Amino acid sequence: MTTYLWNPPAPAALRVQDTDARLPVHRLFFVGRNYHAHAQEMGVTVDKATARPFYFTKSPVHLLDSGATLPYPPETTNFHYEMELVVVLGQGGARVPVERAHELIYGYAAGLDMTRRDVQLRLRDKGHPWCLGKDVEGSAVCGAVRPMPATALAQGDIVLEVNGVVRQRADLSQLIWSVPELISDLSQYYHLQPGDVIYTGTPEGVGAVQPGDRLHGRVAGVGEVTLTIGAHA
């Protein structure tokens, strides 16, 4: 029996729709610039013919359940929302061909990638890693997972409202790289595992929030995610 110097943290886990069971999370992957209009609003043009997806990661300890209040984080004055479809894997695999990638899927959720945008852009412009802009405490917000084994979602509305006003709206058919393409591509770099989670990218319309703001996002056929921005931490 292992003796620890202090109590280890509880394992990261997600709620699952219509059950009290929690889904254990292994890793969090995030896809950058996966809608053309969002890439353009970030000052970048993506040519799928010559590019591959790119990714960043967040620590699973930064997962936050839908419905929570997230304190406005320190060291930023430009804290942004990014509404995303979240894919949860139920099987592992490496070097998975695109035509079999859907077999790894357990289900989906609606999620928010919260970002210190001013910090991210400052680091990006200096050629530094984005960690301090993206790997923010509580910044991987996720709704309950809807089990949809081996289902590759290819269309459906994705919408985010801030204080009741629509700020982001797109269709999953506008993803530059589809869900199977993302899973297959990631599996070239990693031995994917059950509990790996992929945030698939955000549509155009990202913007800043302030303390007291209420966010409500939804993905058709999948579920919802809500978040309240709390006082400055």
Rank of each mutant, 00 (worst) to 15 (best):
A150S: 15
L121C: 00
A109M: 10
Q193F: 03
P149C: 13
D185C: 04
K134D: 04
C131Y: 11
D157C: 01
Y108A: 06
P24R: 15
H80F: 14
E82N: 05
T69F: 03
A39L: 03
K134H: 06
L112W: 12
V31Q: 09
A140C: 13
Q17K: 10
A233I: 00
Y190G: 00
I229L: 12
A68D: 09
L23D: 04
S139Q: 07
V145P: 06
H26N: 15
P53N: 12
L172S: 06
T76P: 05
V86N: 03
T151K: 07
R167Y: 01
Q210H: 14
A109V: 13
F54H: 13
Q168E: 12
P129S: 02
P147F: 11
T50K: 10
V46E: 09
L104M: 06
L63G: 08
G111D: 10
P9G: 11
E99I: 02
P73K: 04
T228M: 12
P9T: 12
S139E: 05
A101C: 04
E137C: 09
P53R: 11
G111I: 11
E99H: 15
Y55I: 07
D171E: 04
V166A: 06
R124F: 08
P71V: 09
T69N: 01
A140L: 09
V179I: 12
P9E: 14
L172M: 14
V16P: 05
G207P: 00
D125E: 13
G212H: 10
L123W: 01
D213Q: 03
A94W: 02
T76D: 06
V159Q: 06
V159N: 00
T202K: 10
S173E: 12
Y55K: 04
G32M: 08
N163T: 03
V166Q: 10
D125K: 15
W177N: 06
V222H: 01
L123V: 02
K134Q: 06
K48L: 05
C131D: 14
G138L: 11
V31R: 10
V61M: 11
V165H: 13
